[in-house]
Structure formats: C-alpha cells, structure tokens
Amino acid sequence: MSDTIGAVMLAVGILFNLAGCLGMVRLPDVYNRLQAATKCVTLGTCLVLGAVAVLTAGQSAAIALRGALCIVFIVITSPTAAHALARGAHASGVKLWEGSVADAYAADGEPGAAREETE
C-alpha cells in the first residue's frame, strides 16, 4: 500500500518538476520564470522527498525523518530565495517583459525594507 502511494507521489512530483522546467524555458522574463521555479519545483521536490519518506518509513525511521525535515526546509527557503532573486534582479535593472501590464515597484522608486517611509 505504502509502495503504491510512494510511487504515485514520486511520479506526480517528477511531472510537476517537468512543468516547472518547461516554465523556465517558455516564460518570457526572470520574474515569470521564478514563478514557475518556485511553485512547481517546490511542490515537485517536496513530493519526491515525501515519497522517499513514505517508501522508507517501514524500514528506516532515520531516512524518513530526514526526508520530512528537508520538506520543511525547502518550503521555507525556496520562496525566500525566489524573493531575493526577484528583488536583486529588479534592483540591478532587469526589465519586466514588454507584455507586462504594471510595475508598481518601479513606479514607487523601489522602496527598500530598511528605509522607513515618511507618510
């Protein structure tokens, strides 16, 4: 039973990773690509790690626990890294794709988190 669940999770995880990679190739700019990279690759990788946890839970609590712990870390670090990349790209002048409809961040002059706004 747990073999079947694990195999399904592994397959679905790999499919999401594939969708994420396709997104990296097809989407037009850094920001859109980061969307694909954070969402699909995060869930895909978590599913693969979850599959590892499910498949090994019967034999080795050590591996299963490490797999579960890695899911927690990926869920915390992956969006943080995406945010840092998007912010860094914007700060170094990477333009949005020409089909983009708005850039409120540039319109407001890239206010930094450290700077107190005076309203």
């Binding site: 920001y31 859109n32 969307q35 969006p79 945010h83 912010r87 988190a113």
Partner: peptide, 28 residues
C-alpha cells in the same frame, strides 16, 4: 510574503517595514 510566493500566480518582490508588499502577479 513566503506564503504569497508559494501560492497561485504571485511572487513577493519586496516587503517594506510599514506593511506594503510588492507582488509580481502572473495574471494581473
């Protein structure tokens, strides 16, 4: 900000100390 990044079509680019979030939205 991290939750927004993980959820449909949105990615947080910047968060200011006074509560403004700048969010990249894949389908505005």
């Amino acid at each position: 900000a991290n939750s927004i990044t993980l959820t449909p079509g949105t990615l947080t680019v910047e968060a200011t100390a006074d509560g403004w979030l700048y969010v990249h939205w894949i389908h505005v």
